[in-house]
Design a protein around this nucleic acid. Structure first.
Lengths: 406, 406
DNA sequence: AATTAATTTGTTGCGACGATCAATTAATTG
DNA sequence: CAATTAATTGATCGTCGCAACAAATTAATT
């Protein structure tokens, strides 16, 4: 902000710029006039903005032979070299880093296995080393790095840029933004996994153009990302979306959070494993479902799905039960949020073909009348990548629109 | 819009105008420069807007002797005669109408008892007659009526202006906005009771300046109004906020919606009456708590509260139980929405002194760590009036800011 | 009584955005 | 092949909001 403008007008300008960039991202190659038509802005305005963007090198003029009826126009496209974005996901047992160009195409990627038992400092140092490599990779291609997006498995205070509590890592009060913005001299954007995955779906996935939706992320626990009016909803203090710990059965199993019958205990993959392990504990090895290891502690969710695919009744029943509870919980969410779409991601998406009918049926039956019919329920199509592309998206988001409500 | 302007710039202008009016409403009398400071707008801009408002007669110049250090300025105030607003609430057994001036002071009020058994046409005709009186009352004072806000006990499609379903009235698919905008030739704004009550709290009550809060309206059922970023949240299709039908106990009592253990069955005043009636059915009349009628079907929530106040253990225990369930449900809402405030209104607010400690304790215990401490839990201070002043607020809202997200 | 500080208002120039008219070009059509 | 149509771009002018300077006025202070 070279001349100190009012916040109001500056905001309008930024929104307009974001609008143009976003339209460009979605419809390139495109003419100035077409942008104006799509954004609703005036063409003169668009011309101004595009000229500024050309100066900033974020946009390229690309001669396209006969790209439309009319003047032999020079179409505009986003300049892939206009900037690079680093997406980072710190999981419970891995660190994944991707460098993407300005059109969100990955140009470098690396995943490192870590031990959750290692000291925090070691894990961070390892992550930083990988990020350094990613930055170098981007700079070798001549791309200026715009920012770093970080996905974290826990409660994140977005305003302070602090990881408040990550139960599965045992981390508390880690001022990551401060640390990394000093270390890398770049803007750091961070949020929890589920929020980022939701944002990823909004930008690059199924929730494209869907302004109100809920993303359910089933990993170790059950996280939720809520998008309202096209923006991540974080609540008054940034901790909204803890959908997994809604109590759904006061007589249910104990949950790590101290309550009984959290939704997470009914439908989380881990909770499901635990249940199946217990119920199969007394079964002789040779009667176990096909593909199951003798040592049940080695059981994975994938094995259950495979066994169910081959028709094993116990596994099928277990998945049906999860589907029912999932549907019932989603029905509540539909009652409360009335979203346009619910996306189920993470581990559970492995069983999409087995669970979707039951989920849909339950939701239709259990939510109040008029809202349901317009709510679409789907599974995410990108597995592990959802979060890390969300990390890329959150950086883009800052450029393409204001990110969060409140 | 005399010259066809772009939606974008028009929006900015409307927002600015709303900002000025809102500031004026909150801080009158005030100078132009002070408005500029508070709104963040430029003083010239404010001057422009204020001049327009003076032309529209919505604002008055009021000479105030030495109202501030400096030039003997002429302070600005909203013109109470600038417009009148009609607020209407159609309840299950009453129709209440208020006419308020531009600063939301009631100038005329009337409540009519109706029988929910009367045919729809009769009830509507009765309501329309009262509204006619209210409009006349306003016009007699020389006040131009700006619009009519209507609160309805059921699902409302705000976009279509239609009452979709009101279970307790037995009404379905009533295109009220169409009917009344023709009848009265005025803009009609409508929403369900809980949403309006929430809006009322935001404009005239405790939630003043609170940008994220949840209003729980306990009447016949349990409704919810969610305000996010200072705006009513209605969800993708306008039916968000059906908080009362979140399932909290799969083994619980059957609810009218067809499911078991909805929150409403645990904490709704009516559900509580039913429970207490059942448990006291075999108690001899002379052992009933003080103040209880022999015919238990005459029992009211108020009697229970009174009995509990005199120390009756059964009633106290019943209230404590409700408080516990209320707290548990609010804890879930806190996990999901992370609001700044939760306001409990309606009938339950009669028992605020008996229930608040237990509710607060339960919420603190049961919601995830960092969000709770900043969430305030209170009871509404306005009883029946919450909704009808919300109806006034929704009309003001259209003038003072854009109402709903999405 | 004089000075200082605080507050408000008028005026002017600038930049951004929007509307409109005119001009250009390619595909389509008779 | 000429006319029409669709699409784009350039140029000009008007309006609105903002910043900055100047002027006015009064409470508080010295």
């Amino acid at each position: 902000m070279t001349p100190p403008r009012s916040a109001d007008q500056d905001l309008v300008r930024k929104v307009n710029k974001s609008l143009v960039l976003n339209t460009l991202r979605l419809h390139a190659p495109i003419s100035r006039a077409a942008i104006a038509k799509l954004t609703g802005l005036n063409r003169s305005t668009v011309t101004h903005i595009v000229n500024a963007l050309l100066d900033e090198n974020l946009v390229l003029e690309q001669p396209v032979p006969s790209f439309a009826v009319g003047r032999p126009s020079i179409a505009l496209v986003l300049n892939p070299l206009g900037g690079a974005i680093i997406g980072v996901e710190i999981g419970v047992d891995f660190v994944s880093v991707v460098a993407a160009d300005f059109v969100a195409q990955p140009i470098w990627q690396s995943t490192q296995v870590i031990s959750p038992l290692s000291p925090q400092a070691d894990i961070l140092a390892q992550a930083e080393a990988v990020i350094d490599q990613a930055i170098c990779a981007a700079q070798d291609r001549g791309q200026h790095v715009i920012g770093i997006g970080v996905g974290l498995p826990g409660l994140v205070n977005v305003n302070l840029g602090e990881l408040v509590y990550a139960p599965n890592l045992g981390w508390r009060s880690l001022p990551l933004e401060q640390r990394w913005s000093q270390r890398f001299q770049l803007p750091i954007y961070m949020d929890n996994e589920a929020n980022l995955a939701a944002l990823g779906e909004y930008y690059f996935g199924q929730a494209h153009k869907v302004e109100n939706f809920i993303y359910l992320n089933s990993g170790i626990g059950l996280g939720g990302g809520v998008v309202i009016a096209g923006k991540l909803f974080r609540g008054g203090h940034g901790f909204a979306g803890e959908i997994g710990h809604v109590q759904r059965d006061p007589q249910g199993e104990w949950c790590g959070c101290g309550r009984r019958g959290c939704w997470e205990t009914q439908v989380g993959p881990r909770a499901m494993l635990r249940r199946l392990q217990k119920s199969l504990a007394d079964t002789p090895t040779d009667l176990l479902p096909p593909g199951f290891p003798a040592d049940l502690s080695q059981l994975t969710f994938e094995m259950i799905v495979n066994a169910a695919d081959t028709g094993d009744p116990a596994c099928l029943a277990a998945l049906q039960e999860v589907a029912y509870h999932l549907g019932a919980g989603i029905a509540d969410l539909v009652n409360v949020f009335n979203p346009d779409m619910v996306i189920i991601g993470g581990l559970l998406s492995l069983a999409r073909h087995l669970m979707l009918p039951e989920i849909e049926k339950t939701v239709r039956e259990q939510s109040l009348a008029p809202s349901v019919s317009q709510t679409k329920i789907t599974f995410s199509e990108r597995g592990k990548d959802a979060c890390i592309f969300g990390a890329v998206a959150i950086v883009l988001d800052d450029i393409l629109r204001e990110a969060a409500i409140s």
